[in-house]
Amino acid sequence: MKFAVISRGDETSNALMQKIKNYLLEFNLSYDSTEPDIVITVGGDGTLLYAFHQYTHRLNDTSFVGVHTGHLGFYADWKPEEVERLVIHIAKTPFKIVEYPLLEVIVRHNNSAKSERYLALNECSVKSVVGSLVMDLEIKGELFETFRGDGLCISTPSGSTAYNKALGGAILHPSLASIQISEMASINNRVYRTIGSPLVLPQHHTCLLKPLNDVDFHITIDHLSMVEKSVKSIQCRVAEEKIRFARFRPFPFWKRVKESFING
């Protein structure tokens, strides 16, 4: 089996990365950062997000597992003192594959047939660079509302505990094939009106954001940030691809939610 190890870059994570690499080489596994069967991340959830975006072209062939060197994460669920156990599992145990849905984002521009396609593990957020975000929100090709406010966040179920939760969105179990749309400070008065509540769309529903003013947009895809000009539309839906996690033991999602937000 071929493996790769990605570190957050701090001294502790780098040392642990080298330790994992040496252990796995001793078990006669092959180090291959180009076409790995499994990617081990050392750091936190942000490190796994980074690794995911390095291997979006290999999602059918590469699985991920995370070791945390800070706070326990939703993706990085192995502790540093468990590294020897994890290495033995990787080298000796056929692991279970768990697949979680991803968000597909397609940005189209005015006067251009070319579009840009992105995959998000956590979320996509959209804000205007200057002033309020003003966009028509279409669901399944029908106008649902005209949004006015600070911005919109479209998240995956596994990303529902991140920015989405801070915006008052619901926490969804990561096995649900869906996306969630949450508002950022919407403007609601006698003239303007939005639903004012997060929306959860199933796999076969597409949401389309269409700007009503000619401004530049600040779009984030997980940790990636960009400014897009002359945007015609932003299309979001559940992606055909999924992320694959290597599971060597039960992963109690609701227990992790409780530990993270109630009584860790």
Rank of each mutant, 00 (worst) to 15 (best):
E104G: 03
Y50L: 12
S233A: 15
P250L: 06
P94Y: 04
V67W: 04
F147H: 00
R85Y: 13
V227Q: 13
K165A: 08
F245M: 08
R108N: 09
T93M: 12
L86Y: 03
I20P: 00
Y100F: 14
K19S: 06
E11Y: 06
L25I: 14
S230F: 08
F248P: 03
A170P: 04
E241A: 05
I38G: 10
L72F: 10
G196I: 11
M1V: 12
V5R: 00
R237D: 11
D150E: 04
D10S: 11
N22I: 11
A120S: 09
L72W: 01
P174E: 02
L25P: 01
S115C: 11
T194G: 03
L201P: 02
F147D: 00
G43W: 04
N189Q: 09
G9F: 02
Y118V: 07
S33Y: 10
L121V: 03
K19C: 12
F64D: 01
C236V: 04
I38P: 15
D150V: 01
P94Q: 08
R8S: 10
L209N: 06
V126L: 07
K92H: 10
A177G: 06
V98L: 10
P252I: 14
G73P: 03
Q235H: 07
I40R: 00
G264K: 14
T220D: 07
G151P: 03
L16V: 09
D10N: 08
S63W: 08
V107W: 06
L48I: 03
P80K: 04
T220C: 09
I90D: 12
F147P: 00
G264Y: 02
N111T: 02
M226L: 11
A120G: 05
V67I: 15
N22S: 13
H218N: 13
R8E: 05
S158T: 08
I6K: 12
L16T: 09
M135N: 05
A166W: 04
L199V: 05
M135F: 08
E104K: 07
E240I: 03
P94D: 10
S125R: 03
T93Q: 13
T220L: 04
K21V: 15
L212N: 13
H57R: 08
I154G: 00
V67C: 07
